[in-house]
Design a protein around this nucleic acid. Sequence first.
DNA 1: TGGATTTCTAGAAAACAGTTCTAGAAATTG
DNA 2: CAATTTCTAGAACTGTTTTCTAGAAATCCA
Lengths: 197, 197
Amino acid sequence: MSPKQQRGAETAERLLDAALQVYAESGEQGVTVSALTKASGVSLGSLYHHFGSVDGLMRVLLLRWLGRLLEELAGGVERARTAKGAVRALVRVYLTFIQEHPDASRLLHSSYADRVGMAQAAQLRDAQEARLSPLTAWVRLHTESGEIAALEAPMVEALVMGPIVATARRWLSGIDDADLDQAARVLPERIWRSISP
Amino acid sequence: MSPKQQRGAETAERLLDAALQVYAESGEQGVTVSALTKASGVSLGSLYHHFGSVDGLMRVLLLRWLGRLLEELAGGVERARTAKGAVRALVRVYLTFIQEHPDASRLLHSSYADRVGMAQAAQLRDAQEARLSPLTAWVRLHTESGEIAALEAPMVEALVMGPIVATARRWLSGIDDADLDQAARVLPERIWRSISP
DNA sequence: TGGATTTCTAGAAAACAGTTCTAGAAATTG
DNA sequence: CAATTTCTAGAACTGTTTTCTAGAAATCCA
């Protein structure tokens, strides 16, 4: 990578960092072109050169973080030895992730996520090939071995991820100081009951 | 109500209808002042007279539909005789609602919901007094009678509504033609397992 | 090496959306 | 029937996003 491209990449990077920071500080409404250029010190022209639009910038930011989350979820599932262990891993990884990256997680659960659209998210999943949707691959596997009930994959996904995401959203919205540690302890057992044969 | 006020109310109504229609057709981005005035045939001045802002208009629309959904959920729960029956009712009512009002449901699950903010939704819940959050009241009741496990209310809410909402979101996004009838049959049993003592 | 080309940066200008403002019309009230 | 209120209307203003033109810096190839 040439010095110029290097500098270009750094500029893009600085914009992405600034975007998350601005979003964290002033919410979705606060993410304006001027706020971004001011926070990053990058000019208007560069922003449009690298990302084409503000939404384009946010799309990249979003997909990057979505990628990280899926990556970690897949890793957790892969390391698990049993189906039940996988459920535990999913809960733990997800809840840990939102605690470690609350701003990015809020972004992931925000409207921008809708705007990017499922199509792109699915695309990202497919791009990860081997580690496609941690869940669907896993469901296929464990259904066959009889470890979990013979339900449609989407149903298992709803039963497993539904409560996790609901808990995460609640904590992220900060309406109460939900106890994530307790959730991490109790949820796996409860979720397991719902999908076991 | 005087004829003039009548006409005013009708104007507001026409705007609300147009807003949902525009949202359904062109998504969140498409909901602009000009699109609204054009679709409703109502003037700019009237829009601002009645709602103060575009967000204000969407807020009213959103709260109206949120109210209907909560109303129906509360009704379903109230008619149930057992805790398990209540879970069945919640699943049935929710999935029926999104099928009957897909556009409004998409709006409810969209980013506007965030923009209105939890505060307002909570406010709406409280305003319903006796029929406050269908779930929390219900949880309190059935926990005491030992019908469901002694978990924190938010946890029960996550375990019950999480899978329902996840299923709803999936169907609304139209990524696959998920079978809601099947979900309505299977989910209650599975959810029940996760929260029973 | 050195001119042509690509890539990046920069900000002025244009296009567009949301809101405010002023004014007039229609109905109600005293 | 005058005064007041409520509603409708659209022009003007403000702020935001995007496009456009131009210049600077690095790379590439004759």
